[in-house]
Amino acid sequence: MDLRRLHLLLELSRLGTMRAVADVHGTTTSGVSQQLASLAEEVGARLIEPDGRRVRLTPAGLRLADHAVTILAAVDAARRDLDPDSVPSGTLRVGGFETAIRASLLPAVERLSTTHELIRVELSEYEPLEAFELLESDDLDLALTYDYNTAPLPPSALLESMRLWTIPWGLGVPSSDPTGPVRLLDYAEHRWIVNSRNTADEEVIRGLCALEGFSPNVVHRIDSLDLVEHMIGKGYGVGLLPLHRSTSDAIRISEFASSHDVLMTVYALTRKGRSNWPPLKAMVGALRAVATQDVL
């Protein structure tokens, strides 16, 4: 259905005469008549009928004019929504892992609430592999993911990424253990804690331990870093934690004695071609500001 013709029909319902519609659109009455005749052919119904020396809308024409109000308003809203220069508005579906939600997403959402009040953000917690799948199926608009320098996790060709921040990781051990950089070989007989929904940290641990000549005894699989910390303090095992994380007195996070640094990098991911959508562009800007000011 031709939207211009639909607009002419709506104008006729409001202005009452072909002449008035023609004057508004800078055309002739015969031009308006031809366009409305084509619209009637498109929809398969008679839309106008003679009314003395004028015309009026038929019942079908009146119903279509009513629909035209909603249709044209929806089209205008869609154009404004997709215009990269329009005021950002709408619902933004964002996913991320717990640390990124705390450190980046929540501060960014708070920032947006004061600068872009028309954006509504829906937050969900996902590990990277889950987020990749949801982005590819268009069930998320933006996701925060991570990988390690020793276990890279490149996204698919459908996605594009932006680096936000990088932090070093160390080994969380009970505070009663000797201080100083840790030798992994000293923990060859310990139980190990890894993530339950992402294999990246387990790959890092197994790779580092292999360099020391042993295979770690992975026993526990836990997502929450708070719970990992708690379990380390209670003697359930050791595991990777951010090196500069504030912890309880029960544990300590130590650098590795080897020269193999463990660095985790956090990324913001979107589907390719979506970065100019105003709400997404605003969120990425807020994430950049948070990463620059509050994380790094």
Rank of each mutant, 00 (worst) to 15 (best):
Arg221Ile: 08
Val219Arg: 13
Glu229Tyr: 04
Pro216Asn: 09
Leu185Met: 01
His244Cys: 10
Asp177Ser: 08
Lys234Gln: 11
Val238Tyr: 04
Ile222Glu: 13
Gly213Gln: 09
Lys234Val: 04
Arg197Tyr: 14
His220Leu: 12
Ala210Phe: 01
Leu171Tyr: 00
Gly207Pro: 02
Ser215Gln: 12
Ile205Glu: 00
Lys234Glu: 12
Val204Phe: 07
Pro242Ser: 07
Met231Val: 03
Val173Ala: 03
Glu202His: 04
Pro216Gly: 07
Val228Ser: 09
Phe214Met: 07
Ala188Ser: 15
Gly213Leu: 06
Val194Gln: 05
Pro216Gln: 05
Ile222Gly: 10
Val204Cys: 07
Val182Arg: 06
Ile222His: 10
Glu189Lys: 15
Leu227Asn: 12
Glu202Tyr: 05
Gly170Val: 00
Ser176Leu: 03
Gly235His: 00
Val228Ile: 14
Ser196Asp: 13
Arg197Val: 14
Gly235Ser: 05
Leu240Met: 14
Glu229Gln: 14
Gly172Pro: 08
Thr199Phe: 09
Leu240Glu: 07
Asp226Met: 13
Val228Thr: 14
Tyr236Lys: 10
Gly170Pro: 02
Ser176Glu: 09
Leu225Ser: 13
Arg206Trp: 01
Thr179Met: 00
Asn195Phe: 14
Leu240Val: 03
Val219Lys: 13
His190Trp: 15
Ser176Thr: 12
Gly237Leu: 08
Glu203Leu: 11
Thr199Gln: 11
Leu243Trp: 00
Trp192Pro: 10
Thr199Met: 10
Gly237Val: 06
Ser196Val: 13
Gly237Lys: 10
Ile193Met: 05
Arg221Phe: 11
Ile232Asp: 08
Val218Ile: 13
Pro181Cys: 01
Gly235Met: 07
Leu211Tyr: 09
Asp186Met: 01
Pro174Gln: 08
Arg197Asp: 12
Asp177Cys: 08
Pro181Asp: 10
Gly207Phe: 01
Arg221Asp: 09
Leu241Gln: 11
Asp177Met: 05
Gly170Thr: 02
Tyr187Thr: 08
Ile232His: 02
Arg206Ala: 09
Val182Gln: 03
Leu225Lys: 12
Pro216Ser: 02
Arg206Ile: 01
Arg183Thr: 03
Met231Asn: 01
Leu171Asp: 06
Asp226Val: 15
Gly213Glu: 11
Asp177Phe: 05
Lys234Met: 11
Leu241Lys: 04
Pro216Arg: 02
Leu225Ile: 11
Val182Ser: 01
Gly180Ile: 00
Leu225Asn: 13
Asp186Leu: 02
Val173Glu: 01
Ala188Leu: 09
Leu240Trp: 10
Glu203Ser: 12
Phe214Tyr: 13
Asp186Asn: 11
Asp177Glu: 12
Tyr187Glu: 04
Cys209Gly: 02
Arg191Phe: 14
Val219Met: 14
Ile222Thr: 14
Val194Asn: 10
